[in-house]
Design a protein around this nucleic acid. Structure first.
Lengths: 343, 343
DNA sequence: TGTTAGCACTCTATTGAGAAGAGTGCTAAC
DNA sequence: GTTAGCACTCTTCTCAATAGAGTGCTAACA
């Protein structure tokens, strides 16, 4: 597709632009890098690369910058397989050891370290309840009118909620209800439970109307604990250091978006694929980040997809480094979760 | 202290500067507001107010802006008792009704609505576990090697953690341990428990060494669930709309600070007093916000302090409106928490 | 004695012209 | 195919001039 020399020049331009944020000129390129070519030759090649769609010119007498297609080619064909350095592995391992004491913190600190290593915003989605399997629920006493319902998932995640005890129901009745529900629902995913709930229960109503009416109401309350998918953010302020966001106007929308968890999960929900996936500029569906790139990878435990790690930054991003970090982290996180006795 | 006319002029200057963010000149003041005074007279008064320390001049031929002392006088002496409008009460009530479905969301949405109404950053601290009273703990089975310990507080808050079951301990043993612990610790605050834990347990070791060694280990694990005080943030991006933060340099530190939960609780932990408290500019202890003001109020349920609501903004802030919102919200939040069957 | 009009002065922000710098594209020579 | 040379383009920086807003002082006025 592109001959060797064009590839080398394109690669050099991307590298230079990523590190300087300034359009790259032929003269600078020749001076700064030992390409063994004169500025004029480079000029010709650059002109070709522009016609082919890999480069753009902000205006006539400026240097070239990579086009989205240019970045795409760079990521797909010019980048060596991303590999994290020994040193970084040490930093990460140490970080987890010294900072993380609870499950909640695993995600928070994962977001922090990713953002620190990539100097970009990081996003980490925690496991979704709806994909988990129901193990059992149990009622705990609180006072005469109220009880706590605790829902335990297969993985050992616990959600809880305070509920009203329906009029005329004893705590004994509740335990009876729990036993029934557990027998029926154990091993189902919360998605399945939601869908099959009504039908299941309706059949039972025929045999014991009063009790199961109550059970239905309670289960509904209990399942309402399902929170929206939690997204942990790290390094939002990193954006401010990027020259493309030097202007407050340009960063406002982006920061506002990062405050909206719903939008965030939209950005991340686009892939189920294996490995590290890069989405560049216009390829992003959400219009607020058309000048940004997203690098993401799902993490899994024992083959099952648990959540997503992602990095959001300007299209002018250190793709190699970022991909290497995520490549490492998405494997490492699975192992860390195991250590924390979950999964 | 200040005669009536000076007060009126100072108040007008503060009001104008708060809404325009431009230094206020005598001519503008005379033209824009019906003070019944000529620019020259106003000039004289302004000159006096500057000598008295209530006004400042950015440079010789600019208008005046309020000094911190000016704001202080404005807040203490010139502001009518803050009162929220009927309309706003409606908006808030409606907001809670349509948006809030769980306890967690109460705090998140409270932060959001405060920031929306005040157009500033809001901070809401959730109740602290360490101030709560221990009610009981209970073990739930997970698998052969692990169990879930659930800790219930007086208020119905539930914390949980996956623990390893010590070698040679049966689930029966665990329930025995739970019963013992509950008997001993019920009604104590988590602070007290932490302090008295070792002594209590040590006495018991004398009577049944093996079991209580185990209990000690487990209790330690269980109490480690105490998370750092959670701070909910709202409207961080509102800062970007303020002229004083038009420059990215000036906002970076502030946003970085908002990412550090520890710093946030420092800012908020300064008062136990009643009512709405305003801290202006230099009065703030944390140097990162010397050009900001903090308005805060504690909220309580049945007399007990539960947490803090706060607004952080530039010293040029709509104090009246902000104080009114917090004055209302700190009462309203207590009631809302009751509705959610907690406390 | 307090208030006001007038005026000279100060400081900032804006504008426009000119120069510097970086880069391109084309042509011709190697 | 590669390179040197050169005219041309476009942005950015600098600097001076100017307009605008506001002050402080003085003198006049009620």
């Amino acid at each position: 597709m592109l001959d060797e020399r064009k590839r080398r020049i394109l690669q050099t331009i991307v590298d230079d632009y990523v590190s300087t944020a300034e359009p790259v000129g032929s003269r600078t390129l020749a001076r700064k890098y030992s390409l063994g070519l004169s500025p004029a030759t480079i000029r010709n090649e650059m002109s070709d690369l522009e016609v082919l769609g890999f480069l753009e010119q902000p205006h006539t007498s400026a240097g070239r910058i990579p086009s989205p297609q240019g970045y795409r080619f760079y990521v797909d064909c010019l980048l060596a397989p991303p590999k994290i350095s020994e040193h970084d592995v040490g930093v990460i391992t140490n970080w987890y050891e010294t900072r993380v004491r609870s499950i909640e913190e695993v995600f928070q600190e994962t977001a922090k370290i990713i953002s620190r290593m990539t100097r970009s915003v990081s996003l980490v989605t925690a496991p979704q309840l709806s994909k988990s399997l129901f193990k059992y629920l149990q009622f705990l006493p609180l006072d005469e009118r109220r009880a706590i319902v605790v829902v335990v998932t297969d993985a050992g995640f616990v959600e809880n909620k305070v509920i009203d005890i329906p009029e005329g129901t004893s705590f004994q009745d509740l335990q009876q209800i729990a036993a029934n529900i557990n027998e029926r629902l154990a091993g189902l995913s919360f998605d399945e439970i939601k869908h099959s709930l009504l039908r299941e229960i309706r059949n039972d109503i025929l045999t014991n109307p009063a009790l199961f009416e109550t059970a239905l109401a309670i289960l509904r309350q209990a399942l309402a604990v399902e929170r929206a998918e939690k997204v942990y953010l790290g390094g939002t302020t990193q954006l401010l250091d990027q020259p493309e966001f030097r202007d407050v106007e340009k960063i406002r929308d982006l920061l506002a978006m990062l405050e909206e968890e719903k939008l965030l999960s939209d950005i991340l929900h686009m892939q189920d694929g294996e490995g590290v996936v890069v989405t560049i500029g216009q390829e992003n569906k959400y219009s607020g980040i058309k000048n940004c790139s997203v690098v993401q990878a799902t993490y899994r435990v024992e083959g099952q997809v648990i959540g997503t790690l992602a990095v959001l930054g300007p299209t002018r991003m250190e793709y190699g480094k970022t991909m290497a970090v995520l490549e490492f982290m998405h494997r490492h996180l699975g192992e860390t979760l195991k250590k924390f006795k979950v999964y």
